[in-house]
Design a protein around this nucleic acid. Sequence first.
RNA 1: GUGGGCGUAGCUCAGUUGGUUAGAGCACCGGACUGUGACUCCGGGGGCCGGGGGUUCGAAUCCCCUCGUCCACCCCA
Length: 417
Amino acid sequence: MAITSIRGFNDILPGTSGQWRWIEETAFSLFGLYGFSEIRIPVVEKTELFCRSIGETTDIVEKEMYTFPDRRGDSMTLRPEGTASVVRAYIERKLYTAPVSKLCYTGPMFRYERPQKGRYRQFYQIGAEVLGDPSPGVDAETLEMLMRYFAALGVEGVELKINSLGCAACRPAYKERLLGFLKNTEDRLCENCVRRIGTNPLRALDCKSPGCIEATVGAPEITDCLCGKCNTHFEEVKSALSLYGHDFIVDSRMVRGLDYYSRTTFEITSGALGSQNAVAAGGRYDSLVKELGGPDTPCFGFAIGMERLALVLGTDSFSPTELSVFIPMGAGTKEASVGIVRALRESGLPVAEDFSETSLKSRMKRADRLGARFVMILGADELAEESVTLKDMAAGTQDLVKWNGLESLLAERLTSR
RNA sequence: GUGGGCGUAGCUCAGUUGGUUAGAGCACCGGACUGUGACUCCGGGGGCCGGGGGUUCGAAUCCCCUCGUCCACCCCA
C-alpha cells in the first residue's frame, strides 16, 4: 500500500496554489497600506503559551491541540492559532517600545478536529493584530480594511456581525445576571450547556440545540449591561463603521470560543460555505498582553480562513499567466534553442521547452494540453532562415518570425487578445 | 468524540435474485495524416472492485471488522 497523507492534511496542488499566492499577496499589499508589516512566527511553541492565552477550559485547549514532548521531555504544541505567538513575540522582543505595532502573518495552524467542508486539521490563516491602541477607531478601521480586502478579491455576499463582550468591570456582573437566569431554566438546557454553566455560561446563548434556543428566549443581553466606557466604545465603533459605509448586524448572542476577547468581537460569514460559515473573525483583547507578562496593552486582531476564502471565491476567479511552448526538432537546433528560450524568459514570458523526440503531431498535442496559446517550432527550415514558426493555437494561424524581435512580437500578441 | 452517505480504470460512474475473462464515457498512447493540436475514424495500454476475515461449489455483489473520504453534530478561521 502506497504511503498516503495524514487525515485532514491536504496538498495544495498547482491548480489552486496560484490562487492562494494571489490571495496572500493581495492581503499583504493592502494591509501594508494601513501600516501593517509581516511577522513570521514559529509553528511550534511551548504548550503553556496556548493554555494561558486561549484558555484552559476552551475546546481548543481541552481536546484539539497537537501536543507532544520533545526529546528533552518539554511539552510542545503545534500552533492552533496565531495571536498567542504574535503576543509572545511582542512581549519577548519588546516591540511595545513603539507607540503601536501593526503586525500581520500567514501560515498553517493545527487543530485535531473531525474534517469536513471548510475544516481541516492543518489549515491556513491570514491574520492581523494591532497592539497598543485602545481607540474604537482602530476596531472600525481594521474592519474597514477587512471589508476592503474582500472587495478587492471580488468576494460577494458576506455578512458582518458584531458584538461587545464588555470588560473586566462589567462582564462579571452580566455573567451573574445570566447565571441567575439560566439557573431557572436549567432543566431545559442541553447536557453540554449545563456542564458549561459554571465555567462559561455565555456559550448557552450561542447553542443551536432547540431546547437551549427556547430556554434562553428573554435572557439578559450583554449589550444592555455594558459599563459606561464599554458602551461608549461600542457606540463609537458602530458609528465609525457607518461612516465607512459598511453594513453590519449587532448580534448580542455571538460568543467567541477563545477566552481572551473583550469588548468588540465580530464574525464575517458567507452563505456559500455550508455549516463552517465564518470566513473571518476576531475582536479586541485588551488584557491578554498583560496576562502573558507584558505591559498593559490593548489590542485588536482578526484571522481569515484561507480554505474558506478560496471556497467562497470559487475556481474561476483566478487565471494564471499564459504559457508558450517551444519545440526544437532535428539536428543542429539545440544551440539556437538555448538562446531563443533564454531571451524569451528574460523578457518575462513563460516558456516551456519540449524535449521529447516524438512526432511533431504528438508534441503539438502535448502543447495543446498544456494550455499553450502560442507554439514555436524550430526545425531545419526555420534554422536556415534564423526564424521560428509561430503558431497561434486559438486562431489556428501561423507565420515565420525572425529570432531577432521574437520576444516583443510574442509579448504583443499575448496582450492584444 | 457522535451520527449518516460513499469507496469499482487517471476522472465521472454502470455492474441484473451471488454465476464464464469486471464494463462505459472522458482522459492517455499509437495510426489514418513520414513537419502541425482541438473535430472524425481505427487500434492499444491500463483494475489487489479500499484492506482483512467470514458465508458459499462460486463474492465487486451477502455478513463482520478495519481504513479512507464526504456531509452534519460538536467546535471554529
